[in-house]
Simulated scan of single mutants.
Amino acid sequence: MYNLWERFCQSKVFVLFYAPHRRRLLAHELSLAARGASAYKAVASLVTSKLEEESSMKIELDGGGKVKMAAPPQQWHGDEVMQTAVFAGEQMMAVTDDAGRFDLHYLGFKTTGFASLEDAKASAQAFARAVLAHMAGLI
């Protein structure tokens, strides 16, 4: 491929067409780069203003949110097969699988393979944080 490019650069087509227009092509590429930079600055400015606007939003619980958040957080209830607790107003479930290991389920996500119910419960806070961080990254 490199050899082909070298041969093209030495050809009469290149010398007759590209060389005289090189300055115009470079000027065009520079103008495209400048337009791209100004578009980038405009988008960055818009994003910054939106972030400032969002940070000034007042967030309140509605009626349903008040009910969810009233539940005692991170208190496990259930039996040796399945237990549930509330994390950030949403229910998490620790449940045994067919192999006798334990899984955690939260907001449609799961993590598997805990040796005991206590191991699963000990990892629940980290799992809830990981799920919420993942969901925030989806926005």
Rank of each mutant, 00 (worst) to 15 (best):
G65H: 07
Y40V: 13
M82V: 12
A130N: 12
G137C: 11
K58N: 10
I59S: 12
T48F: 11
R101M: 05
R23N: 09
L4M: 07
S31H: 04
D119Y: 01
M57L: 11
S55E: 14
A19R: 14
V95I: 15
R24Q: 12
Q75L: 12
D103N: 14
K58C: 11
T84R: 05
E90T: 01
V81F: 01
T48E: 15
A88H: 05
T48S: 15
R24K: 12
M57N: 10
G100C: 07
R7V: 02
K41N: 13
A85C: 09
L16G: 06
G64R: 08
L117D: 09
M82F: 04
V13R: 14
V15M: 11
H134M: 06
F8E: 12
S49T: 08
H105M: 07
Q91M: 03
L117F: 12
R23Q: 14
V95P: 06
Q10W: 00
A99Q: 09
Q91L: 06
M93Q: 13
Q74T: 07
N3R: 09
S38Q: 08
K58L: 14
L46K: 08
L51E: 14
A130F: 11
E54A: 05
K50N: 06
F102C: 02
E80M: 02
R129F: 13
R24A: 15
G78A: 00
G65T: 07
D62Q: 03
E52Y: 02
C9T: 12
F87L: 02
D79W: 04
Q75T: 10
Y106M: 02
A70T: 03
D119G: 05
A124L: 13
F109R: 07
R24F: 10
V47S: 05
M92C: 08
T112W: 04
S45P: 00
D119M: 06
W5C: 05
A122W: 08
M135T: 11
L46Q: 05
P72L: 03
F109P: 00
L117A: 13
R35A: 09
S56C: 00
Y2C: 02
I59R: 15
S123D: 13
M92Q: 02
D79Q: 03
G113Y: 04
E29N: 14
G100S: 10
L61A: 11
A122I: 10
Q83T: 12
A136H: 08
H28L: 13
M1C: 10
K121G: 09
L25V: 10
A44D: 10
S31K: 15
D97K: 03
V15S: 14
L51W: 04
H134C: 05
K68Y: 06
V13E: 14
V43I: 05
K41H: 14
D119I: 03
E80N: 02
